[in-house]
Simulated assay, not measured.
Amino acid sequence: MNKLNMLVLFLLFAGLNVLAQTPADTTYYLKNKVGYVRNKDSADYKRVVTAPGPGSNLYQINDYYIDGKKKSTAQGRMDKRMIYEGPYVSYYQNGNKQKEGTYVNNELEGEVNTYYPDGKLYVTKIYKKEGTPALRSEYIKTVKDRKGKVLVVNGNGKYHIYDEDFKQITDEGSVKDGVYDGTWTGTNDEDQISYSEIYVKGKLISGKSKDEKGNSYDYTELIVSPEFVGGTGALSVFLGRNIKYPRKCMEEGIEGTVILTFKVLKTGALSEISVTREIHKDLAKEAVRVVKLSPRWKTGYYRGVPSNILCNLPVKFVLGN
């Protein structure tokens, strides 16, 4: 399920990061859990974006594994950034469907099916928005085991969650009326962490985890995100005070948002800073320089355990009058 060193926090940024000036059949390269990369050799897959045809505002977005096999198909519209809109299907490398559903304004809505690598149905969930302001809800409708036996029917039963390779069950617990309810337990072999949690009507009431050294941690929040000391406002002030607009970009009127990826370590220090969207090499270089000056952040926690968490940060460059 979740791996501590693969958690991704999107700070002040979400959605599909494709440049606003997307021409026909533009190819991008991406790395799992990171995003866009400049070097094809470091990519896990590629994205081909085709501009809308006559009378349409929807781009076609096709992802391919490096070996050329189709990874996913989707559509999107441009609204400052690319927004998923319409049918979506993803595939395993063996060609079988992995997931299918429909996006509405960049979020899956309605019925979404997930499949085992052999093509059999695994889980059916229903997503919808309700209330004012609208809140997105998830209803776990159906769960089947690998032999096709129904474990959850009409939102009630036992839910087994597998690792990414579907080799072992990592989490399991009860589902009632479509949401977590009762006791849930799980393990993460990579990080040697086990946990037990109590849910009531889908809400986490309490949890206790144990690390590889036998230390126990109590928690009431699944994830506590790392944070710049003082919050997003203080981060904006820090960036504003330290960024020096590159002269060449200033003279040529070049603006835009550079996207950086880095890890916030358990100590609060930043590590593995890289550029996932460049705009211009001088802007990217300046964004990296300034982020390297950052003081230590508040530590992030996963299931109560101090964790290294991967973050994406947009650094916006805008020229004044």
Rank of each mutant, 00 (worst) to 15 (best):
T261L: 03
K244A: 05
G231P: 13
L239E: 00
D191F: 10
N242M: 10
R247Q: 12
R277G: 01
I273F: 04
N242T: 11
S216N: 13
F228N: 05
Q192I: 11
S271C: 08
I279D: 05
T261Q: 11
G268A: 15
I279T: 07
T267D: 15
E278C: 11
F228S: 01
S209E: 07
V224C: 13
Y217V: 05
G231Q: 12
R241L: 06
I254A: 10
S209P: 05
M250G: 07
F262R: 05
S216Q: 13
F228K: 06
N215Y: 06
E227T: 06
L222G: 05
S236H: 14
D282G: 04
F262H: 08
R277D: 03
F228C: 04
K201V: 13
A234R: 13
Y217F: 15
I198V: 12
E190D: 12
G268Y: 14
S194I: 11
G233I: 04
T257V: 10
E251L: 13
I273G: 06
I273S: 07
E255T: 14
G214W: 08
S216D: 12
T257P: 07
Y217K: 08
N215H: 10
E278Q: 12
E212A: 14
S196Q: 10
E221L: 13
N188R: 06
H280R: 14
Y219S: 01
V200Q: 15
E227N: 08
S194W: 05
I193D: 09
L204N: 00
K208L: 04
G214A: 07
E212H: 12
K281E: 07
K263W: 14
P246W: 04
D211Y: 03
E278M: 10
S206G: 02
